[in-house]
Computed example of a mutant assay.
Amino acid sequence: MRPLTPGDVRIAACREGDLVALDRHLPSPSHPRRYTRQLAGLGTLLVAWDGGQPVGHCEVRWDGCAAAEVRGVVGDCPEVNGLFVWPESLRRHGIGTALITTAEDLVRDRSGPRIGLGVKDGNTRAAALYVRLGYRPAVPRYLDRWSYVDQDGRMHDNADPCAFLVKELG
């Protein structure tokens, strides 16, 4: 795969026809749920494209973080959720930054004063990126609880220790 620059990547809201390509190149059981949230106006699933291939995604959750301990501090502050760039060789090429910047622009367009995101404990590379982009701690510790159903129909429950960071959009 050729090296990418941020100008090579196009960011767009997911369309129904994009779900097949997402599942082929960035398999995740959350794509249909995130797209359904988008159709309901609760989120926007952003996809980073290199030509016809998805290389990253994130969701802007318009209703904010689902964790009660976060909502108690930041309310319904829109949240960047599920940021992912793949393959791993494309990380540190500006794709994650482009996704976050696009999410911030969407929130600004809706006159949102701030945006937040969670970062899993130990994910130092992501935390450094978020701080560089102007995000600051709002909730130092919470559990990000999430579930998914695997291809065999089994439910898996997860709880990741995280910090929630917020950026004022001014």
Score class of each variant (00 low, 15 high):
M1Y: 09
R2D: 15
R2M: 12
R2T: 13
P3S: 11
P6R: 11
G7W: 13
R10E: 12
I11T: 04
R15K: 15
E16D: 14
G17H: 15
L19M: 14
L19S: 07
A21E: 06
D23V: 09
D23F: 07
R24F: 04
H25A: 13
L26P: 03
S30Q: 10
S30I: 11
P32C: 09
P32N: 06
Y35L: 08
T36W: 10
Q38T: 02
A40N: 08
A40D: 11
G43R: 00
A48V: 06
D50Q: 10
G51S: 09
G51E: 10
P54F: 06
V55Y: 01
G56R: 00
G56K: 01
C58V: 06
E59A: 11
G64W: 02
G72E: 10
G75H: 10
D76K: 14
D76T: 12
C77R: 01
E79D: 05
E79C: 08
V80C: 10
N81W: 09
G82S: 12
L83E: 04
F84W: 12
F84P: 01
W86T: 07
W86S: 11
W86F: 11
P87T: 09
H93K: 07
I95N: 00
I95A: 00
G96M: 05
G96D: 01
T97Q: 09
L99F: 05
I100R: 02
I100A: 10
T101H: 13
T102Y: 10
V107R: 01
R108H: 05
R108T: 03
D109Y: 12
S111N: 14
G112V: 02
G112Q: 05
P113T: 13
I115Q: 04
G116V: 03
G116T: 06
L117I: 10
L117W: 04
A126S: 09
A127T: 05
L129T: 02
R132Q: 09
Y135A: 00
Y135V: 00
P137E: 03
P137Y: 00
A138Y: 08
V139Y: 04
V139C: 05
P140S: 15
L143N: 12
L143W: 11
S147G: 09
D150T: 08
Q151L: 13
R154A: 13
R154T: 14
M155Q: 12
H156A: 08
H156C: 04
P161C: 06
P161M: 09
C162P: 06
F164A: 07
L165V: 00
K167T: 08
L169W: 05
L169S: 09
G170P: 12
